Each structure stands twice: as C-alpha cells, then as structure tokens.
Deep mutational scan, measured.
Amino acid sequence: EKTLKIVADSEEEAEALAKELAEKYNLEVTIERNPEEEGKYVITIKIKP
C-alpha cells in the first residue's frame, strides 16, 4: 500500500479534489485539517497494490 498526501488551501478545494480522485480513479481518499499550517487541509490518498 502506498500513501500520497496533498495539501489544499481550503476545505472546498480539498473536497472537490478528493471527490474527483475517488470517483475517477477509485481510490480511498480522506481529508483532515493540517496541524502544521492553519487554514490548510491534507488530502490523503491510499493506493492499494
């Protein structure tokens, strides 16, 4: 299993990107607040072998 993390500037941007990735590529995608940067969100994508 591989994990890729993407940082987005807004929750709306994160949700839109996560939804597109999940639907288009059938990936497991989660969104959470970035504890290191206020106002940023981390999109985590898990790629199963």
Rank of each mutant, 00 (worst) to 15 (best):
V7I: 12
E38L: 12
L27Y: 15
E23S: 11
E28Y: 06
K2D: 15
E32S: 05
P35Y: 11
E23Q: 11
E1I: 09
A22L: 12
I43M: 02
N34M: 13
K46F: 15
A14C: 02
K19R: 10
T30K: 06
Y41H: 02
N34I: 10
N26A: 09
P35Q: 10
E1M: 04
V42Y: 03
E12I: 09
D9C: 03
K19N: 08
G39S: 08
V7L: 11
A14S: 02
I47P: 04
Y25Q: 04
A16Y: 11
A16K: 11
T30S: 10
E20D: 08
R33E: 09
E20R: 14
E23H: 08
E20W: 14
A14E: 00
N34R: 07
E23V: 11
V7N: 15
K24W: 12
K19A: 11
T3Y: 15
K40D: 01
L4P: 02
E28V: 08
A18M: 11
I45G: 09
I47R: 04
I43E: 00
I47V: 06
V7W: 14
K24A: 09
N34K: 06
E36V: 07
A18P: 00
K46Y: 15
L21S: 01
A8M: 14
D9M: 04
E37F: 10
T44G: 01
S10V: 01
N26H: 09
V29W: 13
L4R: 06
K40T: 14
A18V: 13
I31S: 01
P35L: 12
K46S: 09
E36I: 10
E36G: 09
T44A: 03
T3E: 15
A8T: 12
E32M: 05
E38V: 08
K40S: 08
K40L: 05
P35E: 11
D9P: 03
V29Q: 00
L27F: 14
L21M: 13
L17G: 00
A14P: 00
K40H: 06
L4Y: 15
K46L: 13
I47N: 03
I45E: 01
S10L: 01
I43S: 00
A16C: 09
Y25V: 03
E28I: 05
E20N: 14
G39H: 06
E1K: 02
K46A: 06
P35W: 08
K2Q: 15
N26Y: 07
D9Y: 09
K2W: 15
E12M: 10
I47Y: 12
I31A: 01
E32Q: 05
L17P: 00
K46E: 09
K40A: 03
E15V: 10
T30L: 07
T3A: 04
S10F: 02
S10G: 03
K40R: 07
E1F: 04
T30W: 09
R33V: 08
I31M: 05
E28S: 09
E32D: 10
A22W: 14
L27G: 15
E38C: 11
K5N: 14
A8L: 10
A22S: 10
R33M: 10
I43W: 01
E36N: 12
A14D: 00
N34C: 14
E32V: 05
T44F: 12
Y25E: 06
E32K: 03
I6Y: 13
A22P: 00
E1A: 03
K2N: 15
I6C: 10
E13S: 07
K24I: 12
E36A: 07
D9Q: 06
T3N: 04
T30M: 07
I43T: 00
K46Q: 09
D9G: 05
K48F: 12
L27H: 13
N34S: 13
E15H: 10
E20T: 12
V7K: 07
E23M: 10
N26F: 11
S10H: 02
P49D: 11
E37Y: 13
E28C: 09
K2S: 15
P49W: 13
T30E: 05
P49G: 12
E32R: 02
L21Y: 13
G39D: 04
T3P: 15
K48Y: 14
L27I: 09
I47M: 05
I6N: 01
K5V: 15
K24N: 14
K19W: 07
T30Y: 09
E11P: 06
V7S: 13
G39C: 09
I43C: 03
I43H: 00
D9N: 11
P49Y: 14
A22I: 14
Y41F: 10
I45C: 08
K48E: 11
I47C: 15
V29R: 00
K19C: 02
E12A: 08
T3W: 14
L21F: 10
E23W: 07
S10Y: 02
I6P: 01
A22N: 14
S10Q: 01
V29S: 08
Y25G: 08
A14M: 02
E1D: 13
K2H: 15
A14F: 01
A8S: 07
L27A: 15
T3G: 05
L21I: 12
A18N: 01
I31D: 00
E32N: 07
A14Y: 01
E38H: 12
V42F: 04
K19S: 09
A8Q: 03
E20K: 15
N26C: 10
N26I: 04
E11R: 11
E12W: 07
N34E: 08
S10A: 01
E13W: 08
A16F: 08
D9A: 05
E28A: 08
E28F: 06
A16W: 13
I6V: 07
L17W: 03
A14G: 02
G39N: 06
I45A: 13
K24Y: 08
I47F: 13
K48I: 12
T44D: 01
E20V: 14
E15Q: 12
E13N: 04
K40V: 05
D9E: 09
L21A: 04
L21K: 01
K40C: 06
K48H: 13
V7F: 15
E28L: 05
K2F: 14
A16D: 06
K2R: 05
E1W: 06
E15L: 12
E11M: 08
I45P: 01
I45Y: 07
P35F: 12
N26W: 14
K19I: 07
E28K: 09
Y25W: 06
D9H: 05
K48W: 11
I43R: 00
K48P: 14
V29L: 04
T3M: 03
K5R: 05
K46T: 14
A18S: 06
E12D: 09
L27S: 15
E15I: 12
S10W: 01
K5T: 15
T3D: 14
K5F: 15
A14Q: 00
E36T: 12
S10M: 01
V7A: 11
A18K: 09
Y41K: 01
N34G: 10
E37H: 12
K46N: 11
Y25F: 03
E12T: 09
E23P: 02
P49L: 13
N26E: 05
K2L: 15
V29T: 07
L4E: 12
L17E: 01
R33I: 10
A8G: 02
E20Q: 13
I31V: 09
